[in-house]
Design a protein around this nucleic acid. Structure first.
Lengths: 107, 107
DNA sequence: TTCTTTCATCGTTAAACAACGATATAGGCG
DNA sequence: CGCCTATATCGTTGTTTAACGATGAAAGAA
């Protein structure tokens, strides 16, 4: 996973409303459409739709047209991939950082 | 860890240059100052300093004045905390999402 | 066909971000 | 003290984001 892609997903997750939207979508029994999310938030429908679009474009959720509504589902594989990539990055940073501190103590 | 804090860290990580800066800081042997980072990037010093500020304010790195320079070190505990929070969130989302799909298949 | 519902998109506004060059401050050196 | 170095901050510019109300398109009901 390239930095650009990781950063794009992080950016999509970098807004509390969008974290909330993801939880609402996950908690919702069965289908979850835009109106369901809007009902749970003090935001205009257009604003919610815009946030949803950001999540779709980041590849974190999927749109499924269903009659007159659009249902959204999480793409769990993408969350897993991001978690893995982030974990690897954190491990690398932490390891290098620790090694440097070790040398610092010696010098 | 609250959504607002998670989102703030995610936002700070949501730019490829900042991911790069973190790697540069971690890879660097011993101290890492602003000039060291700037040397590795095709960006103005002021721009790099600004990115560093974002990382400091997100609580991901720490500034340590050292003579005429400022050294920066990763706060590994914050990375661990974020990784943990993100992992929990992902697990919750995935679990709920899977349960809903299960019920969907039944209904 | 006509009305209703759902929702994405448009247009707007204000705020935040990203990049730059220029400036200012603070620590060391002569 | 005066000079140099490192770097944070200022001011500017152009871009992106976040929020809203209004509009428009598509599916279904009357």
């Amino acid at each position: 996973m390239k930095d650009e892609e990781i950063a794009a997903m992080m950016r999509a997750l970098g807004h509390p409303v969008r974290l909330n939207i993801l939880r609402i979508m996950a908690q919702r029994q069965r289908d979850c459409c835009c109106a369901d999310v809007t009902d749970c938030l003090p935001l205009a429908q257009s604003t919610v739709s815009q946030h949803i679009k950001v999540l779709v474009e980041a590849g974190l959720i999927e749109r499924r047209p269903k009659g007159t509504r659009n249902c959204y589902v999480l793409i769990t594989s993408k969350f897993a991939a991001l978690e893995s990539a982030f974990g690897k990055m954190t491990a690398a940073l932490t390891e290098l950082s620790a090694r440097n501190r070790h040398q610092e103590n010696k010098g």
